[in-house]
Design a protein around this nucleic acid. Structure first.
Length: 830
RNA sequence: GGGUCUGUGGUCUAGCGGUUAUGACACCGCCCUUACACGGCGUUGAUCGAGGGUUCAAAUCCCUCCAGACCCA
């Protein structure tokens, strides 16, 4: 055999790593290939990639999703777009504060604020570096040079400027409202950050007494809140209590500074079969209580303060933490024999997503983004966005139907973007910085160019520099923004809002928002809300919502289940001869999984092939290797086989005299390529990959190569031209999925890397293209050819004839008579 | 409790009104054939979660139930 230019015997993870290192080592080439060049004149395609949150290791499901975003980025480049695939890292937030608290065993608020922020910054930087490495390792073609960090001044200033803009518009308001509050972490949180956990609680039946001495039993899981009771309600149809309605009932516990009688009223939300069927409504016991208070126009009582302790009104409980207060009140009630029964039961308790602390509803003055008024308009704008897959749009619409309160955006934490506001001494005026300057009001005075506004009307009163002396002692706002306030600017930021107006003009609405379905109600929703409020535009052209990475049994991976798989271990599996092994907790027992080689190319091929967008996918390294490494081996060998024959000097001009089988394979190839091209255009990775895989591991090697082998050995130039043209174009179309694999082969054989191709390969022979008569006729022969070949192979096998021995008595079907000389030679028919 | 989605050979998956129900992996058998044994060829193997219905015709549409996932209350 002539020596192949592709010298390696097969594809390997070590080869992959070597190529990857070369690929990343030369910054200039990297940036030429993948850097964003807004002035190139090509159509701009900006991807609003989800900035990952660094927290130790990167979740394999997220890495898999991310690698598919890369496939989209690369395929759009292949289609001739000017792609901006940004690399951003989300670094604001409570997670890193927790990490620092845990590492140093000290609560945030025991630090000096500046010192704590510095600790957070250092810690998150370490995590960020690990993430950058994984990103490179999985082959992301991000524009790493323009990395953005959401905790950097240039990002935070955009959040602050947008806040000021919305503030001036009156879209951001401050108000004293019941807020969901995490007393342990000392901060307000949004609806979207609340989750439910099952906890054991006690349901206590307490004896109450009406003004005329009638005994009423009320069940509650929160007896400590009796002091905040505003009304007692029964269902309007509940005959048992009809006589009580309108009467006054005495609180069974001592209270301070409030009436100790409340009225008995009716309310339709009462569940008559729960407990005794009588419900005490406390200010802010839960969301339903809040709703009833609002409906009945009652004045709320504040029973819990910001530290999570009981307030004065609770009388003897005053100053106790909620949990202790509950114990204490139960004891008190027991002493007075006012408890009829105590029952342990499972209850879903609302807790904060991050801290898992039971949350309370507390009346607080906070900043809000108004959102309930704009839902209709948002829905109209969303109509213009294409969703992939369409059905996942429902997640967003469902969430929007649930929006009933404004979005509280202020938080009492530190490692976040500061709310850019100062207050005048009398609190009537506020000072905001000019656009473009990042400020930290808790430690700085307003910068030059700041404006003074009326706190109430938002009217501009004048320049801060001139009014300085009339404002008295000014105070900076100490609160910060909810991190979603930052994250929901990502599309504006990457599209050039404020920083590059000329780019923004062309790049907005942002071409693509790819994300996981678990953050539809937060990231996607808030981003769309921003673009509606700020610009009255849809925000995106396409939204691509992927499913979740699950364990091999279809459960979400989580630390508590012990079923997680580390991304790096899969990407490095097979490097340096090391095998990978994983212990994963299944539903019944722990299972050991092993694989010999995976790497980024195989991993990407798996994700591209194995699950459609939007479907949850099971991650099992054993399966990834078994099903997809072989595909790479096969494709590599097809190319290696081709590489032993001279590459014709001109692959772009069709030579005269192609044989019928050459035209036939082009007819098949072109129909594959048409499907691939339109799939790439529709962001349909699955179909594109399936089509390429089927062709590259099926008809091409099993049938065409066998048919032309002898011609190739005889130095037939037509056959060589055909195979090289097909392999070259195949690699271009395949390179979005496996970029290093394609890059290596194409640059070795053809001297040009497939990752640099910026237009989809043209059909070599238009006359056998998709809708041509000639092409259709040739394609209709494919199954006949496959069947015929199979029959010959089985016949030889049945007769014990080896494949390279002659055989007699075979008739070639009349439909493929034109190929008779090919088959005669291929099968040695006599 | 509500919403959304999913349930197809041992495993994963395609199909989404008319197919002998794809394909891959695994299993079993045969084969070293001037690319590839990390390969090739071939054979087993599914009444499409269960039960009702609509239709000339259902894996595909409708209903009920069961199981799982995610989200929400």
């Amino acid at each position: 055999m002539p020596s192949p230019t592709l010298s390696e015997k097969r594809w390997s993870v070590d080869l992959e790593k070597k190529i990857q290192e070369e690929h990343n080592s030369d910054a200039a080439t990297y940036s030429k290939r993948y850097g964003f060049k807004p002035d190139s004149g090509k159509e701009i395609f900006v991807i609003d990639t989800p900035p990952p949150y660094p927290s130790g290791t990167w979740h394999i499901g997220a890495v898999a999703q991310y690698s598919m975003i890369d496939v989209i980025a690369r395929s759009q480049r292949l289609l001739g777009k000017e792609v901006y695939f940004p690399w951003g890292v989300d670094r604001n937030g409570i997670n890193i504060e927790f990490t620092v608290e845990k590492n140093t065993k000290r609560k945030m608020k025991t630090y000096e604020r500046g010192e704590f922020i510095e600790l957070c910054r250092e810690t998150i930087e370490e995590f960020t570096q690990a993430m950058r490495n994984t990103a490179r390792r999985v082959g992301l073609s991000c524009d790493f040079e323009r990395e953005y960090l959401t905790d950097a001044p240039d990002y935070r200033v955009v959040t602050q400027s947008i806040f000021v803009e919305l503030f001036k518009k009156g879209t951001i308001i401050e108000d004293l409202r019941p807020n969901i509050y995490d007393p342990v972490e000392g901060t307000t949180i949004a609806d979207a950050e609340v989750e439910r956990l099952n906890r054991r609680t006690q349901l206590v039946d307490v004896k109450w007494e009406t003004e005329d001495g009638q005994e009423v039993v009320i069940s509650t899981t929160r007896p400590e809140l009796i002091c905040a009771c505003g009304v007692v309600v029964v269902h309007p149809d509940d005959k048992r209590y009809a006589g009580l309605i309108g009467k006054k009932i005495k609180l069974p516990v001592p209270v301070t500074g409030r009436e100790n009688f409340v009225e008995i009223q009716t309310h339709a939300s009462v569940k008559s079969d729960f407990g005794s069927g009588v419900l005490m409504v406390c200010s802010f016991g839960d969301q339903n209580d809040v709703a009833i208070f609002r409906e009945l126009g009652l004045t709320p009582f504040q029973a819990i303060n910001l530290d999570g302790c009981m307030t004065e009104i609770s009388g003897p409980l005053s100053g106790l933490r909620v949990k202790d207060a509950r114990k204490e009140i139960i004891e008190l009630l027991q002493q007075e024999e006012k408890i009829v029964n105590i029952e342990d039961r499972e209850q879903e308790v609302p807790v904060s997503e991050r801290g898992k602390n039971p949350v309370e509803i507390i009346l607080l003055k906070e900043w809000y983004v108004r959102q309930t008024h704009i839902q209709g308009r948002m829905k109209e704008l969303i109509e213009d966005i294409e969703f992939h897959p369409v059905r996942n749009k429902q997640f967003l619409l469902d969430w929007m139907d649930n929006i009933s309160i404004d979005w509280p955006i202020s938080r009492r934490r530190w490692y976040h973007t500061e709310i850019p506001i100062w207050y005048s001494e009398n609190d009537d005026l506020i000072i905001v910085p000019p656009a473009g300057i990042y400020v930290q009001p808790w430690r700085e005075m307003p910068p030059a160019g700041s404006r003074v506004l009326s706190r109430e009307s938002r009217n501009d009163v004048g320049a801060y520099d001139e009014l300085k002396d009339t404002l008295g002692v000014i105070t900076g706002e100490e609160k910060v923004f909810d991190t979603w306030m930052d994250s929901s600017n990502s599309n504006l930021f990457v599209s050039g809002y404020l920083n590059q107006p000329e780019v923004f003009e062309k790049a907005f609405p942002t071409a693509l928002r790819p994300q996981g379905k678990e953050i539809v109600r937060t990231w996607l929703y808030y981003t769309l809300l921003k673009s509606t409020l700020l610009l009255d535009k849809p925000g995106f052209q396409h939204v691509w919502i992927d499913g979740l990475g699950m364990d091999p049994w279809g459960r979400k991976m989580s630390k508590s289940l012990g079923n997680g798989i580390d991304a790096d271990s899969v990407l490095e599996c097979g490097a340096g001869g090391r095998t990978g092994s994983w212990k994963v907790k299944g539903p019944e027992k722990t299972v050991s999984l092993r694989a010999n080689k995976i790497g980024s190319e195989c991993f990407r091929l798996w994700k591209a092939c194995d699950a459609q967008v939007g479907d949850d996918f099971h991650i099992n390294p054993e399966e990834i290797e078994k099903k997809y490494f072989g595909v790479l081996t096969k494709l590599f060998n097809v190319a290696r086989f081709a590489s032993q024959f001279d590459v014709p000097s001109d692959l772009d001009t069709v030579p005269e005299g192609l044989h019928i089988e050459d035209k036939w394979i082009f007819s098949e190839f072109q129909s594959t390529m048409n499907e691939v091209e339109s799939s790439w255009k529709n962001l349909d990775i699955y179909s594109a990959t399936q089509a390429l895989k089927a062709f590259g591991t099926g008809v091409l090697p099993s049938h065409y190569l066998e048919m032309v082998k002898s011609r190739l050995y005889d130095d037939d130039e037509m056959a060589a031209w055909t195979i090289h043209r097909v392999v070259r174009d195949f690699l271009s179309a395949f390179s979005p999925i496996c970029p290093f694999f394609s890059h290596h082969i194409s640059s070795t054989i053809y001297g040009k890397s497939s990752v640099e191709i910026d237009s989809f390969p043209q059909n070599a022979i238009p006359e056998v293209g998709l809708d041509t008569e000639h092409g259709n006729k040739l394609r209709s022969l494919t199954s006949i050819i496959q069947t015929f070949n199979s029959e010959v192979w089985s016949t030889k096998k049945e007769n014990g004839i080896s494949l390279n021995q002659p055989i007699t008595g075979i008739t070639i079907p009349s439909e493929i008579e034109e190929f008779s000389s090919v088959f005669t030679r291929m099968h040695k028919l006599e």
